[in-house]
Design a protein around this nucleic acid. Structure first.
Length: 559
DNA sequence: CAAGGTTGCGCG
DNA sequence: AAAGCGCGCAACCTTG
């Protein structure tokens, strides 16, 4: 049922077979660490247990190095903060105050299982923040987590959330291992065409690429200022003001409003500067090797439950360089994204029948537009996103009353979440992820008395209201996406002959790399997984979550 | 000169 | 048109 993995010293590991409550079923099996992959494979084939470990992203890479994969796991470190914060576990004795979750695991590092790949720094990297938990402590924690789920107000939902989060850790590790197919040669060609040849200057005498240099000279000429640095907002602002260009910030969209002849070269320079510093040659050198971009995904790294990433800006691959994300020869990239995920999640959460009707076709915004905005899709989109984000000003603010009249259920749900947040309460997603409680500073501010202080407190309250308003929708959408990903992974594992690999995931979008001949078999799995995710979260609710599936050679052909 | 904050821009 | 949510990162800039 469960199988806990624990490290014993430098050379040994222990396996603890546990029952459905986490109680040891027999004495542990002790084995040399080098034998672990074979044993894991054997047990996996025989019983498909749920592997329990402190942190999947610590254990799993070393197993993947030996070609060992697992179907399911329970990641204690990911489940811990969810249970500690969840509104659903309030009646239980799960400890609310669990210190910062540091990496205090003692999993095998890469090379332990496969000495050929041993890294030089493995020993130095061993974290020392906190003493390692013993197997007994890990087992007790598993039992406590399972008991907490059973005693909670919504065991089925929490169980699903923990399973989806743990599956996310497996997918993240596998995707990191696989990497995003990246053609450095195409990237370099693009850089050269856009920026000019790679500058030769070393670190001591950094040189600008030729096309940036040319724009810089043109800009300085137009402003009659030969020495300022446009990368410095202060210097740029001063130079603009001296030339009579009155702007409050140096943001591109604000600069665009000016007609001054210096603006076009300035905007062009900013664009190139961004490419050069964020995704230029240095980035390529640092992050792409062996034809793959291998970022680190941080599962549950965002308060709402979305993933974050570390290194290389993995979740911000600019449209500009997506042509370098390129399938291998004979392969395709299948790029799938969920259509209007957040509005659909809101519809399901609020059980808004009218909005569900508008969502019947692929384009929800068009449906909304037809029902209440005279067919104006752009207006409908602005209004709906405004409701989810808490917009009060501008066009979207003006459209709110109209939206609320047509969809009282949906708008009522986000309004209620906003009011709860303003009062300092916590709010909770579909599956039971609750937002953090307000800080002590926030609470203190709400108790102030003078008029000046009160204004500040109100501003803080409204800001928190926008956060909680969005949290329930963004967080529930993240849960749908996790389930989608987990369901897709399961289906792909059942069809190994397809040779399909999950290589990228971005909030509401997945990318699969597979042989061209497998595409007809893989594409429907993505849709099936989406339907399964909907069912898991919302049962038979009359709303669907369509996905757009695009088959391309390179990423910029999608969308 | 290292650490931490700010600005600006990329993504959903 | 440029604000309302969530992020990461590079560069600049201030602080100690």
């Amino acid at each position: 049922m469960y199988m806990l993995l624990d490290r014993l010293g430098a050379r040994e590991a222990e396996l603890w077979p546990l029952d459905a409550q986490g109680l040891p079923q027999s004495s542990p099996r002790r084995l040399p660490i080098a034998e672990l992959p074979g044993v894991v494979r054997e047990i996996e084939a025989r019983t498909q247990p749920r592997w329990v470990w402190e942190r999947a992203q610590a254990w799993y890479p070393a197993l993947l190095d030996t070609g060992t994969t697992v179907e399911r796991c329970h990641d204690l470190s990911l489940c811990r903060p969810i249970l500690a914060a969840s509104e659903f576990t309030l009646g239980t004795d799960y400890p609310r105050e669990i210190g910062v979750v540091e990496d205090y695991f003692d999993a095998p590092s890469r090379g332990d299982l496969n000495p050929a790949q041993e890294g030089l720094f493995d020993e130095l990297e061993r974290p020392s923040q906190r003493p390692r938990a013993s197997a007994q402590e890990l087992i007790e924690e598993l039992q406590l987590q399972l008991r907490t789920v059973r005693q909670s107000q919504a065991p089925a939902r929490l169980q699903l959330l923990l399973a989806a989060e743990s599956a996310g850790a497996l997918v993240a590790t596998e995707m990191q291992y696989a990497g995003v197919p990246w053609r450095a040669d195409l990237h370099e060609k693009l850089l050269e065409e856009t920026l000019g040849p790679r500058p030769q200057g070393g670190l001591l005498s950094p040189q600008l690429p030729a096309k940036m240099q040319a724009l810089l000279e043109q800009l300085r000429q137009e402003l009659g200022n030969n020495s300022f640095n446009p990368d410095s907002p202060q210097e740029l602002m001063r130079a603009l003001h001296r030339a009579g260009i009155e702007v409050k910030t140096t943001r591109s969209w604000e600069l665009q409003k000016s007609e001054h002849p210096a603006i076009p070269p300035l905007l062009a320079y900013k664009k190139l500067a961004r490419l050069f510093s964020a995704n230029g040659w240095a980035w390529l050198d640092q992050w792409v090797s062996g034809g793959r971009f291998r970022p680190e995904y941080v599962v549950g790294g965002v308060v709402s439950g979305r993933w974050a990433s570390r290194g290389g800006g993995a979740l911000q691959i600019p449209k500009q360089v997506r042509s370098a994300v390129h399938a291998d020869t004979g392969y395709k990239l299948i790029v799938a994204d969920a259509a209007q995920l957040e509005p659909r999640v809101l519809t399901a959460l609020a059980q808004d029948r009218k909005m569900a009707e508008a969502a019947r076709d692929h384009d929800l915004y068009a449906g909304i537009a037809a029902q209440g905005f005279g067919g104006d899709r752009a207006k409908a989109k602005i209004a709906l996103l405004g409701a989810i984000y808490g917009s009060t000003t501008g066009e979207s603010g003006r459209l709110m009353p109209q939206l609320a009249r047509t969809y009282p259920q949906a708008v009522g749900l986000v309004e209620a979440a906003a009011r709860a947040g303003e009062r300092g309460e916590i709010v909770t997603t579909r599956l039971g992820r609750s937002c953090p409680a307000p800080s002590e500073r926030w609470r203190a501010a709400q108790r102030t008395s003078t008029e000046q202080e009160q204004r500040w407190a109100d501003q803080l309250a409204r800001s928190r209201g926008r956060f909680t308003r969005n949290f329930v929708v963004q967080g529930s959408a993240a849960e749908w996406a996790s389930c989608w990903l987990a369901e897709l992974r399961r289906r792909l594992r059942q069809r190994p002959e397809l040779g399909a690999e999950l290589v990228f995931f971005l909030h509401d979008e997945v990318m699969v790399h597979c042989p061209e001949s497998s595409v007809p078999q893989v594409s429907p799995l993505i849709e099936e997984a989406a339907a399964a995710a909907k069912e898991l979260l919302f049962g038979r609710a009359p709303i669907n979550f369509p996905v757009s599936v695009t088959v391309v050679d390179h990423y910029d052909q999608a969308k």
